[in-house]
Computed example of a mutant assay.
Amino acid sequence: MNAQELSWLALWGATALYAIAMVASSVHLSRVADARASAKGKVPAGVAASHAGDASARPASASAGRDPAVASKATGIARATTLVGALLNGVGVVARGIEAGHAPWSTMYEYTITGTFVAVVVLLLVQSRRDIAYLFPGVTGFSTLALGLALTTLYQESTGLQPALQSFWLVIHVSIAIIATGVFIVAAVATMLQLMRDYRDEEPAAPGGLVRRWRNANVRLFKRWNWLEAVPSPRTLEALSFRLHAVGFVLWTFTVMAGAVWAEHAWGRYWGWDPKEVWSFIIWVIYAAYLHARTTQGWAGRRSAVLALIGFVALIMNFTVVNLYFQGLHSYA
């Protein structure tokens, strides 16, 4: 078996294991939600009133993964398959690098397989410090789709590096960009859950304009999604999301700066309004606005979450639309 075959098999194996982890972790969350709903029904009204707030408002020590009602096979399957999937994902990336003869970060295919690996590693690292079982379905589901798309659509035969990429800056600039992307993926999942839980906890407002109708539609939708009972309170999710976004923003800042230095070495200028450069800066501005608004302008809650998700959409567009449809000096990526 050569490096190409090893990479291919390892990545397909990782895709399958991530899919299993997504299903198992979803079953886990549904059982947590059922257990909490059942516990609520058994609590006397007076006791419930003296402990106002839903089950998700409990401290971290009483989080979903430590709830006695959810000590099931689904929990172990989800974590084991995620870990083994990450190991296979890493093997696939390393084997691709051996096959290509250089760091495997020069094409969309290589960026995708490495980015999914980083996202799952970030998930596992945070999980080792605090229970975040509620993030597993989203992150493993995203990784399943991303790897499947990479293997079926984005795959390219390994070739030598173009002259502009034959630099040590490839390792510095692109590796940091990939790590930042992995962090932003996990942060985006936490932010989406924050919004869902926030709408679920809200009561429908009186009929009104378009905005109010949109909000009421979301409230009614997420109140039907009982598995959201297994998700922590919006405030807890927002705190986790903010920390992850802050780390990702620092890494993305370094990515933009390193890219400018590399551009000066390769093309003789720090900035040239290339589509990739412009979109990377737009992403930086959106996330900077999110962090600034969240910390200094009191944009806590739904508004800051929407702004963070706009940043993630811009990140995805930078990787897909800009790479595929805009011509520039970064078209090889």
Rank of each mutant, 00 (worst) to 15 (best):
A78T: 01
D54L: 12
L147I: 10
A62N: 09
K42E: 15
V126H: 06
A39Y: 06
K40Y: 11
S50I: 03
K73R: 14
A37H: 12
F136C: 00
L124C: 07
A71S: 11
G101R: 09
R130T: 12
A57M: 08
P68L: 14
A80V: 12
T82N: 04
T75P: 00
S61T: 10
D131T: 04
S128N: 04
P104E: 00
V94R: 11
T114M: 10
A33R: 09
L87K: 00
S143A: 15
V27S: 03
G46D: 13
N89M: 10
T144N: 07
V118I: 15
A48L: 15
T112S: 15
I98K: 14
G76M: 06
V118T: 14
T82I: 03
H102W: 00
A80D: 07
A57K: 11
A103D: 12
D67Q: 10
S30V: 10
S30G: 08
L123K: 01
S143W: 00
S56Q: 10
R129S: 07
Y111C: 06
V120I: 15
G101M: 07
A69M: 10
G138C: 07
A37I: 15
V32S: 02
A100K: 08
Q127E: 15
S56D: 11
G76H: 14
S61P: 00
V121W: 02
V47M: 11
G101E: 04
V32I: 15
Q127Y: 05
T112Y: 02
A69S: 15
V91D: 01
A103Y: 13
S56K: 02
V139P: 03
H28W: 15
K42S: 13
L88E: 01
H51R: 15
V27T: 13
G101C: 11
A45R: 14
A49H: 11
G115W: 08
V93P: 00
P68G: 05
T82W: 00
I132C: 03
A33P: 04
T82P: 01
L135C: 08
L145M: 14
S26R: 08
A64W: 00
A95V: 09
V47T: 14
S30P: 00
T107D: 02
